[in-house]
Design a protein around this nucleic acid. Structure first.
Lengths: 252, 252
DNA sequence: CGAACGTTTGAGATGACTCAAGCGTTGTGG
DNA sequence: CCACAACGCTTGAGTCATCTCAAACGTTCG
């Protein structure tokens, strides 16, 4: 089932069998995409949205000198550019990172869902708000963490998200990113990313290789990155019974 | 009209008179809020959303040591926590920055709109996606700009958003933020914010006083912060006929 | 008037950047 | 199947933006 991973494991919003069937039925096409190819360009009107079935995609903004900031990484099960449905035009570019398989859903079909299925519409809306929640976690990462913390936070997040899609066993997953990709996610230079990855390795927290990421100390990595998965709206807390990230509230 | 500024000036999604009337009719209460007070706490279920009529509010995440990262600033006309309607619980706290007036809309009423008014529902969805687009601009700001650029970008953005609400004449507006607020928005220390503001003053770009912000060189400030208002989805380009921010695309 | 809070400035420390070079891996065409 | 080009990774050395700590000053308000 192509839509199998969409909203899987998300609190209170996973899809009913009927809703899955409706989504399957509005898929107009399945496409295979090459790695490192641009899919949607900022500012150009689009008339369909893209559900990511397999592989990794990203969304990014380039600065004046062409230096890139990724604003989102999408994994299997993500509705990559569903927000293009209400927005009509995107404020950023979308590209593949690795080879990918996607399902195409025309906006006209979403109009039909919007007009006739309020509950499914609310869940589609919910899924775009999950993306926004991830944006906020990334803002925290960039605004408040040092370089090691940023990478630790990103890898912790990615581990949990891939677990939802069945692509991580909780400690190991295939990512296929370069160190420069990590840099463009974490707002640091690729030279520094290299040193940060070495440090995570030396501290026995995590081994990053372009092909495989292996987290040796899940809780320690989360602590180093102040990672608290609340913003992922999971049905199950992956850290239940650990004290990895009990937060201090300065008003408490 | 309380909902007057909601989605005002946003491309393709401003409300019809009838839609304004519906929104007005679902307001259960108007409240006055004190400055610096917490309104919604992360993780607690809420059953209404808040439309900001006047004043400034913010959304933020605190780190382990209580250091704060703002993830959004809300101005008059913003639906501060509409995303709490599909999400049910928020991943961050919400507070006032200044004294504020808000209108309360119960989620039950939004259920009715969701069930019977697909077009208005799409516009409400749209407004939450505008917030996400602003999050992305903030990610760019934190990931790719130096301290001076970050502050310049924030002040440029705020100027445009306040213009939409009729609260800036295009160069001057009241903000009422401390330098520490700016720090928590831009991910820098308050000591450094002070030096950055001095620099903007000395470069004749902008004078920030807690009470009044005066932009002396709108285009120069935008250039310094690589500010491109595309992500605000305006009906009118405020920089039309200027060359302030023509972007280089590295694929062009 | 005094307390609390916000702003300003200085001096020294440091995390991340830049520039530069060398090394490893992969894919491809001769 | 080898050679080489392209790309990504690694390391070193020097620089710079921002941070930290500290103190003084200004403003507001009870």
């Amino acid at each position: 089932m192509l839509t199998e991973n969409f909203l899987k494991g998300r609190r209170g919003s996973s899809l009913s069998l009927e809703e899955h069937a409706v989504l399957e039925s509005v898929i107009s096409e399945v496409r295979t995409l090459s790695p490192r190819s641009m899919i949607v360009r900022a500012g150009e009107p689009i008339y369909h949205s893209t559900l990511l079935i397999d592989g990794f995609m990203c969304r990014y903004v380039d600065d004046r000198e062409g230096l890139r900031q990724l604003v989102a990484v999408q994994v299997a099960g993500d509705f990559v550019d569903l927000h293009a449905y209400p927005l009509k035009v995107l404020d950023h570019d979308v590209a593949t990172l690795t080879a990918a398989t996607v399902a195409i859903i025309p906006h006209g079909k979403l109009d039909q869902i919007n007009a006739t299925m309020p509950e499914l519409t609310r869940k589609l809306w919910f899924s775009t708000l999950l993306d926004a929640a991830v944006h906020r976690a990334w803002l925290f990462r960039l605004g408040r963490l040092d370089a090691v913390g940023r990478v630790a936070h990103f890898l912790s997040e990615t581990n949990v998200r891939l677990q939802l899609a069945g692509l991580s066993d909780g400690t190991r997953f295939a990512l296929g990113f370069t160190q420069t990709d990590i840099s463009e996610i974490c707002g640091i230079t690729n030279v520094h990313t290299n040193r940060v990855l070495r440090q995570l390795r030396e501290e026995q927290l995590c081994v990053f290789r372009s092909s495989i990421v292996e987290i040796q100390d899940v809780e320690g990595l989360a602590r180093r990155g102040q990672f608290d998965p609340g913003y992922l709206y999971l049905s199950h807390d992956p850290f239940k019974d650990t004290a990895a990230h009990q937060k201090q509230n300065r008003f408490a």
